[in-house]
């Protein structure tokens, strides 16, 4: 797990195969993610996601039907998305019986885009702690303080 990661999950009353199609088929992706999705679901495939009149490139990383799907986005146009210039979105599908699936999403990379290369390397070498816990703790402290 990289440093600043958003991790969320949901329990869906449908088989993993159905959930898989919902998160990977471009016409379905356009229902929950971007307005326009041009994407081939193959590792390394370059595509495009449009949000209104804005949008940007997206690159598929892992495709392991029906359990794992990940892509990078939010990298500068014209650049190859790598660690440091983009965000990684990773979906994991965990079947719980024949008709129920736990869907987990982890989005990471937010903090890395502004870092000098040397710091990214140092960061990559270090052990990382969980983010959620840190922020939960801070949020508790902040709410106890006067905000003025």
């Amino acid at each position: 797990m990289s440093g600043l990661a958003i991790e969320r999950e949901v329990l869906i009353e449908a088989p993993a195969e159905v959930v898989w199609r919902t998160i990977t088929e471009p016409d379905q992706m356009s229902l929950w993610f971007a307005d326009r999705v041009d994407l081939v679901i193959e590792p390394g495939a370059h595509g495009y996601m449009g949000f209104g009149d804005q949008g940007g490139p997206v690159v598929v990383e892992a495709v392991d039907r029906p359990t794992r799907f990940s892509f990078r986005w939010n990298h500068p146009p014209g650049e190859e998305p790598v660690v440091g210039n983009s965000m990684l979105v990773e979906f994991t599908l965990i079947p719980e019986g024949a008709e129920r699936t736990r869907l987990r999403v982890v989005e990471s990379g937010h903090e890395l885009r502004d870092w000098p290369e040397a710091e990214k390397q140092r960061y990559a070498d270090e052990h990382r702690e969980g983010w959620g816990e840190f922020f939960d703790r801070l949020a508790g402290v902040v709410s106890e303080r006067p905000s003025g």
């Binding site: 088989p15 229902l31 929950w32 999403v105």
Partner: peptide
């Protein structure tokens, strides 16, 4: 900011759930 990003994914996951359950 962190909570906003999390809420955005919660909304997306809720939509995925709705679509997948309806399809099933």
């Amino acid at each position: 900011l962190m909570a906003d990003l999390a809420a955005r994914w919660d909304r997306r996951l809720a939509t995925i759930k709705r679509i997948a359950e309806a399809a099933h």
